[in-house]
Design a protein around this nucleic acid. Structure first.
Lengths: 256, 256
DNA sequence: TAGTGGTCTAGACCACAAT
DNA sequence: TTGTGGTCTAGACCACTAC
């Protein structure tokens, strides 16, 4: 038998967090609204600063609230962006649209990105993923994706220059606009499968900075993705998402 | 130009966290070893309790350390379990093995599970996922998976009784041992695709309890999975993993 | 300039582990 | 019983934001 919401939280900070969460979910506060901050909670509940912080930390960790130092605590915009693998990896679509931009549009946001490329010698972990020797030349490209001008995704890709060097697609350039499959098709590298490995982990300091995440307690979804032509890797890539802003979907066909 | 590790962290707790992280990664402490606790840090660094806690919180959030109240702070066992979609969803394998058990074995652990089933009326969210009317009867099954006797995965599945009711597979029973595809094949429901939606979010209180997660700051990976027979859902399921203990892999074929 | 959240000190009490 | 981490009080200073 469930008593529903009549449980008494054993700790003060949980009680306060429950109150605030209830108010948000009930609609007393809307996206972007200012919430009672540390000082307000101290006064309203008669608790010390640390206890007020603990209560707000619960909401921040749940992705319901975000603190802007010097300004206040605000309700987080909540809608997740959906990244659908079956939308991205079909030859017909890949050639003409940016998968990221259409994901963002579908979530009602405006998407664009920045990127920089440079040839480097493959570090050992990347060499392993590309099945080449460490130190072999690869093209490294970093992307930062923005939705409504706010950073929302990072990625970093590596392509062996043994494959792309000297070809028209050596530099990914606006590569995010056309996709890896279409680019590789242009140089007769016909990708036949992609492997994506998904993990969740704590955000690293540089990710916190670049994605504008809270300094403490942030986590990210990471995809480690590799494109293959007959079991030979032609591109590998790390993709980083704020953990609470994205949803990844996969459609898996079951053969007879 | 990178200066490597010679940066000076601006905050005391970060400095302490960096020291401890370095010691762990350098191998001064091994999996399961006891780390300096709050009291030791207070003495060694001459800081207040809250600052020592903040330092340890960084390591706990990164999944490097785990606190056992009353006992101390210990280095977390680190190896992730790999859940590979291409291992799970092939008809030949699915009939004879437990996908979970073989994942665990591959990570060098012993896997088993508990489960309970009961018929219920479909709540609205589940009805929507199964494309049936709310209140229609469904079989609900809860699983808890253990690796080396420690809880490592939760799941909860729902199947419309309009499909399975009165058949030999009405109760999933040891369903985790054979898989949904093989069970549905037995009653001539031939599943042709599966959709998995992956998200990361803060752990809920009941998940914290059942998975033995730390009370504060824990996050989980969640898969919302549905099996289809020609666009008609025959099973849907929520799967919950401790965020820092799992890796999900997907192989995506690219047609010509 | 006034107010905010982030960091920090110096105490305290508790439930729970290990002994 | 002793020590541990978890919670909490009551202060303080800082960098930053908004005005």
């Amino acid at each position: 038998m469930k008593t529903g919401s009549s449980d008494k939280p054993p700790h003060r900070y949980e009680e306060i967090a429950n109150d605030l969460r209830g108010a948000i979910l009930r609609g007393d506060y809307h996206e972007g609204d200012r919430l009672p901050g540390e000082n307000a909670i101290m006064k309203n509940y008669g608790v010390a600063r640390a206890t007020a912080r603990d209560a707000l930390a619960v909401l921040r960790h749940e992705g319901l609230a975000i603190a802007r130092p010097g300004a206040g605590v605000f309700v987080t915009p909540s809608k997740r962006i959906i990244r659908d693998s079956s939308n991205r990896y079909s030859r017909t679509r890949a050639a003409n649209t940016s998968p990221f931009r259409s994901d963002a549009t579908r979530a009602g946001q405006h998407g664009n990105w920045e990127h920089t490329s440079q040839p480097i010698e493959a570090p050992s972990e990347i060499a392993q993923r590309l099945k080449i020797e460490p130190g072999q030349p690869v093209m490294e490209t970093r992307y930062r994706y923005l939705a409504d001008e706010r950073p929302i995704q990072l990625s970093q890709s590596w392509e062996p220059l043994a494959i792309t060097g000297g070809t028209p697609v050596e530099y990914p350039e606006e590569g995010a606009a056309v996709g890896v499959i279409a680019r590789m098709d242009m140089i007769q590298q016909h990708i036949d499968h992609v492997i994506e490995r998904v993990t969740a982990r704590a955000a690293k300091p540089e990710e916190i900075e670049q994605l504008n995440l809270p300094r403490r307690g942030a986590y990210v979804l990471m995809i480690d993705r590799t494109h293959y032509v007959e079991d030979r890797p032609v591109e590998t890539c790390d993709i980083i998402f704020p953990g609470d802003r994205y949803e990844l979907t996969y459609t898996i066909p079951i053969p007879d």
